[in-house]
Design a protein around this nucleic acid. Structure first.
Lengths: 229, 229
DNA sequence: AACCGCTTGTGAACGCAGGAACAAAGTCGC
DNA sequence: GCGACTTTGTTCCTGCGTTCACAAGCGGTT
């Protein structure tokens, strides 16, 4: 594979983040090396797929032995860009936004919130996760001043697009959107959508399909969906 | 094609949930019909893909006119199993769990929390989203009594597997896991993993890849020999 | 020093998802 | 009543992701 930066598939990138978490845990436990089988088991993926994912980074294991835990962890961290801290701003501090602002998983992975913003006056000044909530009117100024490149939207759906516009206008190039609306952003800005209720509905569908109330009976029954060995 | 329920791809199911949300909004606005183009725009997908998704439900539109908003909404709701309310239990009421328990998006889509559980004594009795937090010791009893089929895990990673075991033992068949660990569950139990920090890391990677025109060349290049010490 | 087991890395096949183009079908206008 | 326009439903195709299977390479052992 092209060792420089051919283009790592997004699906692989998402899994690399999982591997990184597992490797960090192993490193804290004092482990020196891991095999692809063990690492794949802890990450919940196929061993061959894991090796293919890692092959995008160039050869980084030792045949017959496995992978060096610390070396692999650092290499993945470097590829993902976690090595350096990134300034993020978060808009909307309702229940979900507050949880995100206080989520330890972000800070430990190189994401630092440099600004929390809300439009409700009663939330201004409230300290969440070590930072005081500021009025949204300060948003542009803080984004420019801190050169934040990542914006997280946890507002109601109605104002999400307006917040997105302000974020991109201020220079944010990556947006993580928890509001249940499809955002439109200028070219060059990455938007990732996370809809919590969608996940639940997929589960409900699988459950419904499994129950086979009356309809699906005449069709061939699905033997084993999602059967991973 | 097949009018019953042959097998709908999971990716399609996830998008159907999005279409359902948009259609609900249109119905509340009084709209009677929509074209695939408009619906696709609001959902952020390709019109052709949307039509292909809907074709899995059998023909449900009128050529030359579009889709009947109410009819399509009800049909998707029926396929997804949202028509009837589903009993869910939630374990772990830290910041994220509390946000989930109070998230309006769940209740309005047919998911009803019938039990909130935590192990911390100071959280017992606290009312969140209209329900009182109970000790985890009551978990099995409540699951059996309410016949809950969906369990949501928002605990620390260390106890997530134990919670998963108890949920499945009590009869839960679908699990939505927010803890950053890969859960192992008995066959026949669906587990969906949501890792909030993974999404941010994907964004960070895309950002890194975007503004490293030549820097990545030497840095990410494999040392060719010596591997990793 | 050579053999053997173990593990990585890669090549190929399979299945799936996404996109574009085409045909069918229904409605509106005349 | 007939034609034309609009929009759906379908089909083909391309590309991607995933899995299986095998060759290559390294360490330990005799």
């Amino acid at each position: 594979m092209n060792p420089s930066r051919p283009r790592i598939p997004e699906a692989t990138v998402a899994r690399l983040a999982v591997y990184l978490r597992v490797l960090t845990g192993l490193a804290d436990g004092g482990r020196a090396s891991v095999s692809s089988g063990e690492l794949a088991g802890a990450a919940g993926v196929n061993p061959a797929g894991l090796r293919k994912d890692l092959s995008h980074l160039g050869p980084c294991g030792v045949r017959g032995v496995g992978y060096d835990v610390l070396g692999l962890r650092d290499r993945i961290a470097r590829v993902l860009g976690v090595e350096r801290s990134r300034a993020c701003v978060l808009v909307g501090l309702g229940n979900l936004g507050s949880a995100l602002a206080d989520y330890a998983g972000f800070g430990s992975r190189g994401f630092e919130f440099v600004g929390l913003f809300d439009s409700a006056p009663e939330r201004i000044g409230q300290v969440i996760g070590g930072h005081a909530v500021q009025p949204v009117t300060e948003l542009d100024q803080v984004v420019v001043g801190t050169r934040a490149t990542i914006g997280v939207i946890a507002t109601p759906a109605e104002v999400a697009q307006a917040v997105c516009d302000r974020l991109t206008a201020a220079g944010v190039r990556s947006i993580l959107n928890f509001a249940p609306v499809a955002l439109v952003a200028p070219a060059g800005v990455d938007v990732r959508q996370v809809d919590l209720s969608v996940e639940l509905q997929v589960l409900a569908f699988l459950d419904t399909q499994r129950d086979t109330p009356d309809d699906a009976r005449r069709d061939a029954r699905v033997p084993a969906l999602g059967g991973m060995s």
